[in-house]
């Protein structure tokens, strides 16, 4: 994903921040149409400071979740499952 430019004309207020946040979520989750995506990333973000900040925050949040919220299965679980399944299969 190409990083949008920091807004040069910093509009400090977003008229509809909650709707923008919903759109931002759709863009980041791959649920937005190509037109929505293009408009939001290339036009809206470049002119809107609150949404630009939100964008960076949402991207960082997703990164943190990816790196901090995963855990590996205990080593013996795979073997235990295989064993139970082979019992089932031989029945």
């Amino acid at each position: 994903m190409n990083t949008p430019q920091e807004p040069h004309k910093k509009k400090e207020d977003c008229s509809n921040q909650n709707e923008c946040l919903k759109l931002l979520q759709a863009v980041l989750d791959g649920d937005a149409t190509p037109e929505q995506r293009e408009h939001f990333l290339k036009e809206h973000l470049e002119g809107c400071m609150p949404c630009y900040k939100n964008y960076n925050l949402e991207v960082m949040l997703r990164e943190k979740i990816k790196t901090k919220c995963c855990s590996e299965a205990p080593g013996d679980l795979m073997e235990a499952i295989k064993q139970k399944v082979s019992q089932l299969a031989s029945r």
Binding site: C69, C70, S71, E72, A73, P74, V85, A89
Partner: peptide, 19 residues
């Protein structure tokens, strides 16, 4: 076929499933 599906399509997701 069952064993192949189980071992190659199901078991590789064990870490995601556990999480």
């Amino acid at each position: 076929e069952k064993e192949a599906i189980f071992n190659h399509e199901f078991l590789p997701h064990i870490n995601a499933m556990y999480n």
